[in-house]
Amino acid sequence: MKRDVDEHTGVETTGHVWDDDLRELNNPLPRWWLTVFYACIAWAIAYWVLYPAWPGIHGYTSGLLGYSSRQSVTSAVAEGAAARADLRQSLVSKPLAEIKANETLYRFATATGASVFANNCAPCHGRGAQGSQGYPNLNDDDWLWGGTLDEIYRTIQFGIRSDHPDTHTTDMPRFGADKLLEPKQIDDAAEFVLSLSGRSSDEVAAARGKQIFADNCAGCHGDMALGNKDMGAPSLADQIWLYGGQKADVRASIHGGRGGKMPAWTTRLNESSVRALALYVASLGGSK
């Protein structure tokens, strides 16, 4: 067969002619390119056979190697957990104070605690544990239920007013709503409470409130209003106001009572996580 060869370039043409003299040059793909191309096709076929590839209606072809990315992640995670099993075990078996004294364990515990905190606690207490109205700031030195490492641990374990039998339970009565105090009395009591931290604007009312406080509030909050960790009663003499430090906030607290809640984490997390969490929270700077 004779080949059509273009006069100008010396390249073979396809033999087709348009508009009298328009010819299409036939430059074949380089051999190496074709080889790579066919190798890719062969590769793809082998891949289809060996790995998950084709979607079906009720699933997909799983491939001869039985590989699954989910499985590979799960086993990698399990491998990581197995590598840390010793440390995890120590978190559970050793007293908290001993963990704190062991540098390696403590670093592991606080790092673990930080991630447990981010996953479980941050929604209420905030990413930096800074809290918000009704949700305590865990960085400060004011602790409703006690700020020692063991107290923090216990609070996390059983929660506050949770459904766990060992939880902290006491709450503040609804003095106004349950008609225990008259609105006027509530007003005076609020003035007195504010005066303890130098916030009162009405000294006469505050003086009237002193007796109301002694009769109704001092049982839990203490004669000096310094609070009581066993009851979860906050100090009213300090500068930290969980529900706001304006007069209206204090009145609302007395009127409707207060009783924030926290779940018992011992039923939700494993023991090593709870302990890591306690150590992390205690590391935030306010722990006693």
């Binding site: 905030g126 990413r127 930096g128 544990a129 800074q130 700031n137 960085n139 400060d140 030195d141 004011d142 100090s235 300090d238 500068q239 930290i240 935030l284 700077g285 306010g286």
Partner: peptide, 18 residues
């Protein structure tokens, strides 16, 4: 310096930074 929280108010009114 810590960015979250930027500062912490302590019970006696002092301000603490981490």
């Amino acid at each position: 310096p810590d960015r979250n929280p930027l500062f912490v108010r302590l019970s006696n009114g002092d301000v603490r930074n981490g």
